[in-house]
Design a protein around this nucleic acid. Structure first.
Lengths: 201, 201
DNA sequence: CGATGAAGTTTACTGCGTAAACATTTAGTC
DNA sequence: GACTAAATGTTTACGCAGTAAACTTCATCG
């Protein structure tokens, strides 16, 4: 039997894999993607530059592991937001939660839902990250023949708003002189409300 | 007066800046972002590795120049799509054009509308890339008090769908056994139609 | 106790972005 | 036409990145 020792014993770290993922996530969120390198993660974990290769095939594999953390988090948030009496209200709250997640953790959000980094993240596609929570909620709101379209539309709407907000494309040439855009939270609520209101029963 | 000689004369290239942008765009679209380096662009232009620095402050500046090409292209496509009698139809066509652009030139689309690369691209924000075309069309469809919301919603919707399609997140756990997702074109039409239909007059 | 294999280290190679110093050409002036 | 300055390319060099290969340490099992 093997004990997954959490101690470090000088030479052997004991818990490198998890430490690397944690370090990488911190690096990502505090200094951006461009600061996230295998070597930097190794440094942060107090280990030699090549050590990560004992736990990850390559950089993409580490990124995938970090992304997976994010999928679980996002899923939790959506599930939390979905606890509303009114189904339409629940959908709106999911949208707000999605956008809020993106704005609070932009680099992680981009890693998770931007250009695919590897096929190694189990939850990277439609099935993960709480997609089912969103789609179930939408499915309960529209007739079966428009169900698929409505689900994709709902996801597209909040995903698009999240991307635009995260990438700073909602400020500039809008209303006011210097276009002080509304907080993404509020925007998410308005936009998803508009969408939900227009949804055919 | 100065003649912008298009000839190359051995040592002096004569037209390096434009050649670099063209080469970079080709590299980007044929081999992806990761293949697009200053050095690769220089190689493609048949010039030394440092030559690009005479025309671009850094890599970000070159990327910004490439992106600007894309903004003009996208703008043209939206303008073209907007030539429809029925204003709602015109909006739908704009959405389809937006998504089609993204799917046909995914790497360029990501460069243009993904994580901002520099503030050097004149059209990178809301004001460029045909944002005004979309927003004008939407503005004509809804009452003034919901105008701003509707504009952002419309952009979010098509932008989100474009991102999801480009990043391959519309396949997988959907309808069919292996989820043969509908063509993004068709999806775009369905989704934007649904949105337009639900828009309050 | 000694072998085995997992986990870490060192060394090395290539490509990248960038800075600095140098070389070549073109343009503009006497 | 020769002289000079500015623009444009080139060479050299540095540090950092990802990764491959060979070596080292150590915990475990027979």
């Amino acid at each position: 039997m093997f004990t997954v020792s959490t101690e470090k014993s000088g030479y052997h770290h004991g818990n490198l894999r998890e430490t690397l993922v944690r370090t990488a996530l911190t690096l990502l969120e505090e200094s951006g993607v461009e600061a996230l390198s295998l070597r930097a993660a190794a440094r942060g974990a107090g280990v030699s530059a090549m050590a990560p290769y004992r736990h990850f095939a390559d950089k993409a594999a580490l990124l995938a592991a970090v992304a997976d953390q994010g999928y679980a988090d996002l899923r939790d948030r959506l599930a939390q937001a979905d606890t509303q009496a009114d189904p339409r209200q629940a959908l709106v709250e999911q949208g707000v939660a999605y956008v809020r997640f993106a704005c609070e953790r932009p680099a992680l959000f981009r890693l998770m839902l931007g250009a695919p980094v590897a096929d190694l993240a189990p939850n990277s596609k439609k099935g993960g990250g709480g997609y089912d929570i969103l789609s179930t909620r939408v499915a309960g709101l529209v007739a079966e023949d428009r169900r698929d379209t409505a689900i994709i539309a709902a996801w597209s709407l909040v995903h698009g708003l999240a991307c635009l907000a995260v990438d700073g494309r909602l400020h500039g040439a809008h209303g006011g002189p210097q276009g002080e855009a509304a907080a993404p939270d509020a925007l998410a609520r308005q936009v998803t409300s508009l969408f939900v209101a227009g949804l055919p029963a």
